[in-house]
Design a protein around this nucleic acid. Structure first.
Lengths: 241, 241
DNA sequence: CGCGCCATTTGATTTTGATCAAGTGAAAAG
DNA sequence: CTTTTCACTTGATCAAAATCAAATGGCGCG
Protein backbone atom coordinates (compact mmCIF):
# COMPACT_ATOMS: atom_id res chain seq x y z
CA UNK A 1 0.00 0.00 0.00
CA UNK A 2 2.70 2.39 1.07
CA UNK A 3 4.81 1.29 -1.85
CA UNK A 4 1.96 1.59 -4.28
CA UNK A 5 1.17 5.16 -3.18
CA UNK A 6 4.81 6.04 -3.64
CA UNK A 7 4.61 4.67 -7.20
CA UNK A 8 1.61 6.71 -8.05
CA UNK A 9 3.26 9.81 -6.69
CA UNK A 10 6.46 9.26 -8.61
CA UNK A 11 4.61 8.84 -11.83
CA UNK A 12 2.89 12.16 -11.17
CA UNK A 13 6.17 13.99 -10.85
CA UNK A 14 7.29 15.52 -14.17
CA UNK A 15 10.06 13.54 -15.81
CA UNK A 16 12.54 16.38 -15.88
CA UNK A 17 11.96 17.05 -12.17
CA UNK A 18 12.44 13.43 -11.09
CA UNK A 19 16.18 13.52 -11.64
CA UNK A 20 16.55 17.18 -10.69
CA UNK A 21 19.44 17.76 -8.30
CA UNK A 22 17.74 20.81 -6.84
CA UNK A 23 14.31 19.35 -6.31
CA UNK A 24 14.63 18.32 -2.68
CA UNK A 25 16.71 21.16 -1.23
CA UNK A 26 15.09 23.86 -3.34
CA UNK A 27 11.65 25.39 -3.39
CA UNK A 28 10.25 22.55 -5.49
CA UNK A 29 10.68 20.25 -2.51
CA UNK A 30 7.63 21.69 -0.78
CA UNK A 31 5.32 21.31 -3.75
CA UNK A 32 2.85 18.49 -4.34
CA UNK A 33 3.26 16.49 -7.54
CA UNK A 34 0.29 18.36 -9.00
CA UNK A 35 1.81 21.73 -8.22
CA UNK A 36 5.16 20.59 -9.52
CA UNK A 37 3.42 19.52 -12.68
CA UNK A 38 1.77 22.88 -13.14
CA UNK A 39 5.00 24.78 -12.48
CA UNK A 40 6.86 22.46 -14.80
CA UNK A 41 4.51 23.17 -17.67
CA UNK A 42 5.94 26.69 -17.77
CA UNK A 43 9.51 26.07 -16.71
CA UNK A 44 12.67 25.44 -18.69
CA UNK A 45 16.23 24.47 -17.96
CA UNK A 46 19.14 26.53 -19.25
CA UNK A 47 22.87 26.22 -19.35
CA UNK A 48 24.71 29.41 -18.49
CA UNK A 49 28.26 30.22 -19.56
CA UNK A 50 30.49 31.96 -17.08
CA UNK A 51 29.49 35.62 -17.06
CA UNK A 52 26.02 35.02 -18.54
CA UNK A 53 23.52 37.46 -17.08
CA UNK A 54 20.37 36.06 -15.50
CA UNK A 55 18.90 39.50 -14.83
CA UNK A 56 20.23 43.06 -14.83
CA UNK A 57 19.97 45.83 -12.25
CA UNK A 58 16.86 47.88 -13.03
CA UNK A 59 15.31 45.32 -15.36
CA UNK A 60 11.79 44.00 -15.04
CA UNK A 61 11.64 40.58 -13.41
CA UNK A 62 9.96 38.09 -15.71
CA UNK A 63 11.48 34.88 -14.39
CA UNK A 64 12.53 33.33 -11.15
CA UNK A 65 15.06 30.50 -11.15
CA UNK A 66 16.41 27.59 -9.25
CA UNK A 67 20.12 27.01 -9.41
CA UNK A 68 20.68 23.40 -10.46
CA UNK A 69 24.43 23.57 -10.67
CA UNK A 70 27.08 26.28 -10.36
CA UNK A 71 27.50 29.58 -8.56
CA UNK A 72 25.62 32.79 -9.30
CA UNK A 73 26.85 36.18 -8.12
CA UNK A 74 24.57 39.07 -7.21
CA UNK A 75 26.13 42.46 -7.87
CA UNK A 76 25.38 46.13 -7.50
CA UNK A 77 27.09 48.80 -9.55
CA UNK A 78 27.47 52.51 -8.99
CA UNK A 79 27.08 55.07 -11.76
CA UNK A 80 30.86 55.40 -12.10
CA UNK A 81 31.35 51.65 -12.44
CA UNK A 82 32.43 50.72 -8.93
CA UNK A 83 30.98 47.32 -8.24
CA UNK A 84 30.17 45.20 -5.22
CA UNK A 85 29.10 41.58 -5.07
CA UNK A 86 26.29 41.52 -2.51
CA UNK A 87 25.60 37.82 -2.52
CA UNK A 88 26.72 34.47 -3.82
CA UNK A 89 24.13 31.80 -4.49
CA UNK A 90 24.86 28.12 -4.71
CA UNK A 91 22.74 25.18 -5.84
CA UNK A 92 19.98 24.52 -4.94
CA UNK A 93 19.19 28.15 -4.02
CA UNK A 94 16.17 29.98 -5.29
CA UNK A 95 17.06 33.00 -7.38
CA UNK A 96 14.77 36.01 -7.44
CA UNK A 97 13.16 38.76 -5.42
CA UNK A 98 9.49 38.00 -4.88
CA UNK A 99 6.96 40.85 -4.79
CA UNK A 100 9.05 43.39 -6.68
CA UNK A 101 8.61 44.36 -10.32
CA UNK A 102 12.13 45.59 -10.85
CA UNK A 103 15.40 43.96 -9.89
CA UNK A 104 17.67 46.02 -7.65
CA UNK A 105 20.64 43.84 -8.50
CA UNK A 106 22.36 42.08 -11.36
CA UNK A 107 22.59 38.30 -11.22
CA UNK A 108 25.12 36.53 -13.37
CA UNK A 109 26.77 33.14 -13.53
CA UNK A 110 30.11 33.16 -11.73
CA UNK A 111 30.86 29.71 -13.09
CA UNK A 112 29.41 27.64 -15.87
CA UNK A 113 25.97 26.89 -14.40
CA UNK A 114 22.59 25.41 -14.93
CA UNK A 115 19.29 26.95 -13.85
CA UNK A 116 15.62 26.13 -14.08
CA UNK A 117 13.51 29.16 -14.97
CA UNK A 118 9.82 29.67 -14.33
CA UNK A 119 7.66 32.70 -15.04
CA UNK A 120 7.26 35.11 -12.18
CA UNK A 121 3.49 35.14 -12.48
CA UNK A 122 3.12 31.39 -12.27
CA UNK A 123 5.16 31.16 -9.10
CA UNK A 124 3.54 34.26 -7.58
CA UNK A 125 0.15 32.64 -8.09
CA UNK A 126 1.38 29.41 -6.60
CA UNK A 127 2.79 31.24 -3.57
CA UNK A 128 -0.57 32.84 -2.87
CA UNK A 129 -2.21 29.42 -2.75
CA UNK A 130 0.57 27.52 -0.98
CA UNK A 131 1.60 28.63 2.52
CA UNK A 132 4.38 26.00 2.60
CA UNK A 133 5.92 27.57 -0.47
CA UNK A 134 5.86 31.04 1.06
CA UNK A 135 7.34 29.56 4.21
CA UNK A 136 10.18 28.05 2.20
CA UNK A 137 10.87 31.33 0.41
CA UNK A 138 10.66 33.18 3.71
CA UNK A 139 13.29 30.90 5.20
CA UNK A 140 15.55 31.40 2.23
CA UNK A 141 15.16 35.18 2.51
CA UNK A 142 16.09 35.00 6.20
CA UNK A 143 19.11 32.84 5.41
CA UNK A 144 20.26 35.35 2.81
CA UNK A 145 19.71 38.14 5.32
CA UNK A 146 21.86 36.38 7.93
CA UNK A 147 24.58 35.89 5.33
CA UNK A 148 24.37 39.50 4.18
CA UNK A 149 24.77 40.72 7.76
CA UNK A 150 27.71 38.42 8.41
CA UNK A 151 29.27 39.88 5.32
CA UNK A 152 28.64 43.47 6.42
CA UNK A 153 30.87 42.83 9.44
CA UNK A 154 33.53 41.48 7.10
CA UNK A 155 33.25 44.44 4.72
CA UNK A 156 33.13 47.08 7.42
CA UNK A 157 35.57 45.87 10.02
CA UNK A 158 37.96 43.23 8.77
CA UNK A 159 41.45 43.73 7.36
CA UNK A 160 42.35 42.65 3.82
CA UNK A 161 43.95 39.46 5.16
CA UNK A 162 40.91 38.63 7.27
CA UNK A 163 38.63 39.34 4.34
CA UNK A 164 40.46 36.96 2.04
CA UNK A 165 40.61 34.25 4.71
CA UNK A 166 36.88 34.77 5.39
CA UNK A 167 36.16 34.39 1.70
CA UNK A 168 38.10 31.13 1.52
CA UNK A 169 36.19 29.82 4.50
CA UNK A 170 32.89 30.83 2.93
CA UNK A 171 33.74 28.96 -0.25
CA UNK A 172 34.96 25.92 1.69
CA UNK A 173 31.58 25.75 3.42
CA UNK A 174 29.44 26.36 0.32
CA UNK A 175 30.92 25.00 -2.93
CA UNK A 176 29.92 21.43 -2.33
CA UNK A 177 26.17 21.11 -1.68
CA UNK A 178 26.84 17.62 -0.33
CA UNK A 179 29.37 18.65 2.32
CA UNK A 180 29.26 21.19 5.12
CA UNK A 181 32.96 21.87 4.78
CA UNK A 182 35.47 20.99 2.07
CA UNK A 183 39.25 21.31 2.45
CA UNK A 184 40.14 20.98 -1.23
CA UNK A 185 38.17 22.95 -3.78
CA UNK A 186 38.25 25.13 -6.86
CA UNK A 187 37.55 28.83 -6.46
CA UNK A 188 34.35 29.66 -8.36
CA UNK A 189 35.45 33.30 -8.71
CA UNK A 190 38.25 35.12 -10.51
CA UNK A 191 40.53 37.48 -8.58
CA UNK A 192 38.51 40.38 -9.97
CA UNK A 193 35.28 38.86 -8.65
CA UNK A 194 36.86 38.12 -5.28
CA UNK A 195 37.98 41.75 -5.10
CA UNK A 196 34.44 42.88 -5.89
CA UNK A 197 33.10 40.59 -3.21
CA UNK A 198 35.55 41.77 -0.56
CA UNK A 199 35.56 45.48 -1.35
CA UNK A 200 39.25 45.34 -2.29
CA UNK A 201 41.35 45.66 -5.44
CA UNK A 202 42.64 42.73 -7.48
CA UNK A 203 46.21 43.53 -6.41
CA UNK A 204 45.41 43.45 -2.71
CA UNK A 205 43.58 40.15 -3.08
CA UNK A 206 46.52 38.67 -4.95
CA UNK A 207 49.01 39.85 -2.34
CA UNK A 208 46.95 38.36 0.47
CA UNK A 209 46.70 35.05 -1.37
CA UNK A 210 50.48 35.05 -1.70
CA UNK A 211 50.86 35.86 2.00
CA UNK A 212 48.51 33.08 3.09
CA UNK A 213 50.33 30.68 0.81
CA UNK A 214 53.75 31.67 2.16
CA UNK A 215 52.51 31.19 5.71
CA UNK A 216 51.21 27.74 4.75
CA UNK A 217 47.61 28.56 5.60
CA UNK A 218 46.61 27.45 2.12
CA UNK A 219 48.13 25.81 -0.91
CA UNK A 220 47.25 27.01 -4.44
CA UNK A 221 47.68 25.39 -7.81
CA UNK A 222 46.75 26.88 -11.17
CA UNK A 223 45.33 30.02 -9.51
CA UNK A 224 42.02 28.38 -8.80
CA UNK A 225 42.70 25.14 -7.00
CA UNK A 226 42.98 25.61 -3.23
CA UNK A 227 43.62 23.23 -0.35
CA UNK A 228 43.37 24.10 3.31
CA UNK A 229 45.52 21.89 5.57
CA UNK A 230 44.10 23.32 8.81
CA UNK A 231 40.63 24.84 8.68
CA UNK A 232 40.78 26.12 12.26
CA UNK A 233 43.93 28.00 11.44
CA UNK A 234 42.21 29.58 8.43
CA UNK A 235 39.33 30.55 10.72
CA UNK A 236 41.77 32.30 13.03
CA UNK A 237 43.19 34.21 10.10
CA UNK A 238 39.62 35.18 9.24
CA UNK A 239 39.15 36.77 12.65
CA UNK A 240 36.60 34.15 13.72
CA UNK A 241 37.89 33.00 17.10
CA UNK B 1 -24.69 48.21 8.74
CA UNK B 2 -21.14 48.97 7.63
CA UNK B 3 -20.75 51.31 10.57
CA UNK B 4 -22.17 48.83 13.03
CA UNK B 5 -19.77 46.12 11.92
CA UNK B 6 -16.91 48.58 12.30
CA UNK B 7 -18.09 49.20 15.89
CA UNK B 8 -18.17 45.54 16.74
CA UNK B 9 -14.73 45.11 15.32
CA UNK B 10 -13.33 48.04 17.21
CA UNK B 11 -14.72 46.78 20.48
CA UNK B 12 -13.00 43.45 19.83
CA UNK B 13 -9.60 45.07 19.45
CA UNK B 14 -7.65 45.17 22.71
CA UNK B 15 -7.65 48.58 24.34
CA UNK B 16 -3.88 49.00 24.28
CA UNK B 17 -3.76 48.09 20.59
CA UNK B 18 -6.46 50.54 19.54
CA UNK B 19 -4.23 53.56 20.01
CA UNK B 20 -1.05 51.76 19.02
CA UNK B 21 1.04 53.75 16.58
CA UNK B 22 2.53 50.60 15.13
CA UNK B 23 -0.65 48.61 14.66
CA UNK B 24 -1.36 49.44 11.05
CA UNK B 25 2.13 49.48 9.58
CA UNK B 26 3.45 46.64 11.70
CA UNK B 27 2.72 42.95 11.76
CA UNK B 28 -0.37 43.46 13.93
CA UNK B 29 -2.06 45.11 10.96
CA UNK B 30 -2.66 41.75 9.27
CA UNK B 31 -4.26 40.10 12.30
CA UNK B 32 -7.96 39.68 12.95
CA UNK B 33 -9.34 41.22 16.16
CA UNK B 34 -9.46 37.74 17.69
CA UNK B 35 -5.83 37.03 16.85
CA UNK B 36 -4.82 40.46 18.06
CA UNK B 37 -6.64 39.68 21.30
CA UNK B 38 -4.81 36.41 21.73
CA UNK B 39 -1.43 37.94 20.99
CA UNK B 40 -2.21 40.83 23.28
CA UNK B 41 -2.91 38.53 26.21
CA UNK B 42 0.78 37.69 26.27
CA UNK B 43 2.30 40.95 25.13
CA UNK B 44 3.64 43.93 27.04
CA UNK B 45 4.86 47.40 26.23
CA UNK B 46 8.26 48.59 27.44
CA UNK B 47 10.14 51.84 27.46
CA UNK B 48 13.80 51.50 26.53
CA UNK B 49 16.50 53.95 27.56
CA UNK B 50 19.17 54.73 25.00
CA UNK B 51 21.60 51.83 24.98
CA UNK B 52 19.14 49.36 26.54
CA UNK B 53 19.67 45.89 25.09
CA UNK B 54 16.69 44.09 23.58
CA UNK B 55 18.63 40.90 22.92
CA UNK B 56 22.30 39.95 22.89
CA UNK B 57 24.37 38.10 20.30
CA UNK B 58 24.30 34.39 21.13
CA UNK B 59 21.34 34.62 23.49
CA UNK B 60 18.24 32.47 23.23
CA UNK B 61 15.34 34.30 21.64
CA UNK B 62 12.36 34.38 23.99
CA UNK B 63 10.60 37.47 22.67
CA UNK B 64 9.87 39.20 19.43
CA UNK B 65 9.01 42.89 19.43
CA UNK B 66 7.36 45.63 17.50
CA UNK B 67 9.03 49.02 17.59
CA UNK B 68 6.40 51.56 18.62
CA UNK B 69 8.71 54.55 18.78
CA UNK B 70 12.43 55.16 18.42
CA UNK B 71 15.35 53.58 16.57
CA UNK B 72 16.91 50.20 17.33
CA UNK B 73 20.37 49.25 16.09
CA UNK B 74 21.42 45.71 15.21
CA UNK B 75 25.08 45.03 15.82
CA UNK B 76 27.64 42.30 15.43
CA UNK B 77 30.85 42.17 17.43
CA UNK B 78 34.07 40.30 16.82
CA UNK B 79 35.99 38.52 19.56
CA UNK B 80 38.44 41.42 19.87
CA UNK B 81 35.68 44.02 20.21
CA UNK B 82 35.49 45.38 16.69
CA UNK B 83 31.87 46.19 16.05
CA UNK B 84 29.61 46.72 13.06
CA UNK B 85 26.04 47.92 12.95
CA UNK B 86 24.31 45.63 10.44
CA UNK B 87 20.87 47.20 10.51
CA UNK B 88 18.81 50.08 11.80
CA UNK B 89 15.17 49.51 12.55
CA UNK B 90 12.57 52.22 12.79
CA UNK B 91 8.96 52.19 13.98
CA UNK B 92 6.82 50.28 13.16
CA UNK B 93 9.32 47.55 12.22
CA UNK B 94 9.09 44.03 13.53
CA UNK B 95 12.14 43.05 15.58
CA UNK B 96 13.28 39.45 15.67
CA UNK B 97 14.54 36.52 13.67
CA UNK B 98 11.80 33.94 13.17
CA UNK B 99 12.69 30.22 13.11
CA UNK B 100 16.01 30.51 14.94
CA UNK B 101 16.63 29.62 18.58
CA UNK B 102 19.66 31.80 19.04
CA UNK B 103 20.18 35.41 18.04
CA UNK B 104 23.14 36.05 15.73
CA UNK B 105 23.06 39.75 16.52
CA UNK B 106 22.66 42.21 19.37
CA UNK B 107 19.70 44.57 19.26
CA UNK B 108 19.76 47.68 21.37
CA UNK B 109 17.93 50.99 21.52
CA UNK B 110 19.86 53.68 19.66
CA UNK B 111 17.48 56.30 21.01
CA UNK B 112 15.00 56.34 23.84
CA UNK B 113 12.39 53.94 22.45
CA UNK B 114 9.22 52.02 23.06
CA UNK B 115 8.59 48.43 22.05
CA UNK B 116 5.80 45.90 22.37
CA UNK B 117 7.09 42.43 23.29
CA UNK B 118 5.39 39.10 22.70
CA UNK B 119 6.63 35.61 23.42
CA UNK B 120 8.33 33.85 20.55
CA UNK B 121 6.20 30.74 20.92
CA UNK B 122 2.91 32.61 20.77
CA UNK B 123 3.84 34.37 17.56
CA UNK B 124 5.41 31.26 16.04
CA UNK B 125 2.15 29.41 16.64
CA UNK B 126 0.19 32.25 15.15
CA UNK B 127 2.44 32.33 12.09
CA UNK B 128 1.80 28.66 11.42
CA UNK B 129 -1.93 29.27 11.37
CA UNK B 130 -1.94 32.61 9.55
CA UNK B 131 -0.51 32.79 6.04
CA UNK B 132 -1.09 36.58 5.95
CA UNK B 133 1.19 36.96 8.95
CA UNK B 134 3.93 34.91 7.38
CA UNK B 135 3.52 36.93 4.21
CA UNK B 136 3.94 40.15 6.18
CA UNK B 137 7.07 38.85 7.93
CA UNK B 138 8.41 37.58 4.61
CA UNK B 139 7.99 41.03 3.10
CA UNK B 140 9.77 42.63 6.04
CA UNK B 141 12.65 40.14 5.71
CA UNK B 142 12.94 40.96 2.01
CA UNK B 143 12.92 44.68 2.78
CA UNK B 144 15.71 44.21 5.30
CA UNK B 145 17.63 42.12 2.77
CA UNK B 146 17.34 44.88 0.16
CA UNK B 147 18.58 47.40 2.70
CA UNK B 148 21.44 45.16 3.81
CA UNK B 149 22.59 44.75 0.21
CA UNK B 150 22.40 48.47 -0.46
CA UNK B 151 24.55 48.95 2.59
CA UNK B 152 27.08 46.36 1.46
CA UNK B 153 27.78 48.51 -1.58
CA UNK B 154 28.28 51.48 0.72
CA UNK B 155 30.59 49.56 3.07
CA UNK B 156 32.62 47.92 0.37
CA UNK B 157 32.99 50.56 -2.28
CA UNK B 158 32.24 54.07 -1.05
CA UNK B 159 34.69 56.65 0.28
CA UNK B 160 34.40 58.06 3.80
CA UNK B 161 32.67 61.17 2.47
CA UNK B 162 30.20 59.15 0.43
CA UNK B 163 29.53 56.90 3.39
CA UNK B 164 28.68 59.81 5.69
CA UNK B 165 26.51 61.44 3.03
CA UNK B 166 24.78 58.10 2.42
CA UNK B 167 24.12 57.77 6.12
CA UNK B 168 22.57 61.24 6.27
CA UNK B 169 20.34 60.38 3.34
CA UNK B 170 19.31 57.13 4.97
CA UNK B 171 18.31 58.95 8.13
CA UNK B 172 16.51 61.66 6.18
CA UNK B 173 14.39 58.97 4.54
CA UNK B 174 13.69 56.92 7.67
CA UNK B 175 13.47 58.93 10.90
CA UNK B 176 9.98 60.16 10.32
CA UNK B 177 7.56 57.28 9.76
CA UNK B 178 5.06 59.82 8.39
CA UNK B 179 7.32 61.27 5.72
CA UNK B 180 9.28 59.66 2.89
CA UNK B 181 11.97 62.30 3.17
CA UNK B 182 12.73 64.93 5.83
CA UNK B 183 15.17 67.81 5.34
CA UNK B 184 15.47 68.78 9.03
CA UNK B 185 16.01 66.06 11.61
CA UNK B 186 17.89 64.92 14.68
CA UNK B 187 20.47 62.20 14.27
CA UNK B 188 19.36 59.13 16.21
CA UNK B 189 22.97 57.95 16.52
CA UNK B 190 26.08 59.21 18.27
CA UNK B 191 29.30 59.70 16.29
CA UNK B 192 30.53 56.39 17.71
CA UNK B 193 27.41 54.59 16.44
CA UNK B 194 27.66 56.28 13.06
CA UNK B 195 31.27 55.10 12.85
CA UNK B 196 30.17 51.55 13.69
CA UNK B 197 27.48 51.76 11.04
CA UNK B 198 29.83 53.04 8.34
CA UNK B 199 32.87 50.93 9.13
CA UNK B 200 34.88 54.06 9.98
CA UNK B 201 36.40 55.64 13.09
CA UNK B 202 34.81 58.41 15.13
CA UNK B 203 37.50 60.83 13.99
CA UNK B 204 36.91 60.18 10.30
CA UNK B 205 33.16 60.59 10.73
CA UNK B 206 33.68 63.87 12.54
CA UNK B 207 36.04 65.19 9.87
CA UNK B 208 33.58 64.31 7.10
CA UNK B 209 30.75 66.06 8.95
CA UNK B 210 32.95 69.15 9.21
CA UNK B 211 33.78 68.93 5.53
CA UNK B 212 30.13 68.58 4.48
CA UNK B 213 29.24 71.50 6.75
CA UNK B 214 32.01 73.71 5.30
CA UNK B 215 30.85 72.91 1.78
CA UNK B 216 27.29 73.85 2.79
CA UNK B 217 25.88 70.43 1.99
CA UNK B 218 24.43 70.29 5.50
CA UNK B 219 23.99 72.53 8.51
CA UNK B 220 24.54 71.17 12.04
CA UNK B 221 23.49 72.51 15.42
CA UNK B 222 24.24 70.94 18.78
CA UNK B 223 25.99 67.98 17.14
CA UNK B 224 22.75 66.17 16.49
CA UNK B 225 20.42 68.56 14.69
CA UNK B 226 20.91 68.47 10.95
CA UNK B 227 19.32 70.33 8.06
CA UNK B 228 19.82 69.57 4.40
CA UNK B 229 19.21 72.57 2.11
CA UNK B 230 19.51 70.54 -1.10
CA UNK B 231 18.77 66.83 -0.90
CA UNK B 232 19.84 66.17 -4.50
CA UNK B 233 23.22 67.70 -3.73
CA UNK B 234 23.55 65.40 -0.70
CA UNK B 235 22.65 62.46 -2.92
CA UNK B 236 25.43 63.43 -5.30
CA UNK B 237 27.88 63.53 -2.40
CA UNK B 238 26.62 60.06 -1.47
CA UNK B 239 27.58 58.75 -4.88
CA UNK B 240 23.97 58.11 -5.92
CA UNK B 241 23.71 59.78 -9.31
C1' DC C 1 57.08 26.43 -32.06
C1' DG C 2 56.39 31.23 -31.33
C1' DC C 3 52.93 34.84 -30.76
C1' DG C 4 49.55 37.33 -28.46
C1' DC C 5 46.09 37.40 -25.02
C1' DC C 6 44.55 37.49 -20.49
C1' DA C 7 44.66 36.62 -15.70
C1' DT C 8 47.56 37.03 -12.09
C1' DT C 9 51.55 38.49 -9.53
C1' DT C 10 55.00 41.64 -8.00
C1' DG C 11 57.08 46.18 -7.24
C1' DA C 12 57.20 51.35 -6.32
C1' DT C 13 54.63 55.13 -4.89
C1' DT C 14 50.62 57.60 -3.31
C1' DT C 15 46.46 58.23 -0.89
C1' DT C 16 43.01 57.46 2.40
C1' DG C 17 41.64 56.70 6.63
C1' DA C 18 43.47 54.91 11.27
C1' DT C 19 45.91 55.96 15.21
C1' DC C 20 47.73 58.78 18.73
C1' DA C 21 47.25 63.00 21.13
C1' DA C 22 45.38 67.45 22.40
C1' DG C 23 41.86 70.63 22.45
C1' DT C 24 36.86 72.49 22.82
C1' DG C 25 32.40 73.12 24.49
C1' DA C 26 28.17 72.06 26.62
C1' DA C 27 25.79 69.91 30.21
C1' DA C 28 25.77 67.67 34.74
C1' DA C 29 27.64 67.47 39.36
C1' DG C 30 29.56 69.40 43.31
C1' DC D 1 29.83 79.35 40.12
C1' DT D 2 33.31 76.21 39.39
C1' DT D 3 34.67 71.69 38.31
C1' DT D 4 34.17 67.46 36.10
C1' DT D 5 32.73 64.73 32.51
C1' DC D 6 31.66 63.31 28.10
C1' DA D 7 30.94 63.74 23.30
C1' DC D 8 32.90 65.66 19.73
C1' DT D 9 36.50 68.15 17.02
C1' DT D 10 41.03 69.11 15.39
C1' DG D 11 45.89 68.22 14.47
C1' DA D 12 50.10 65.37 13.53
C1' DT D 13 51.78 61.11 12.20
C1' DC D 14 51.44 56.37 10.62
C1' DA D 15 50.00 52.28 8.19
C1' DA D 16 47.06 49.74 5.14
C1' DA D 17 45.36 49.43 0.92
C1' DA D 18 44.86 51.88 -3.61
C1' DT D 19 47.02 53.21 -7.62
C1' DC D 20 50.27 53.09 -11.22
C1' DA D 21 53.42 50.29 -13.69
C1' DA D 22 55.86 46.13 -15.08
C1' DA D 23 56.69 41.43 -15.04
C1' DT D 24 55.18 36.52 -15.28
C1' DG D 25 52.95 32.60 -16.78
C1' DG D 26 49.68 29.71 -18.65
C1' DC D 27 46.82 28.81 -22.89
C1' DG D 28 44.87 28.91 -27.37
C1' DC D 29 45.97 29.66 -32.10
C1' DG D 30 48.24 30.47 -36.45
Amino acid sequence: MEVRRQDIHNSDIPVVCRACEARHGGVCGVLTPEQLGELNKHSSRHRLDTGAEVIGQGETVVNYSNIIRGVVKLTKVMADGRQQIVGLQFAPDFLGRPFLEESAITAEAATESEVCNFPRQVLDRLVRRTPELEHKLHRQALKELDEARDWMLTLGRKTAQEKVASFLHLIATHVDPENIETTVFDLPLSRADIADFLGLTIETVSRQFTKLRKENVIRIENNRHVSVPDMDRLMRYAGND
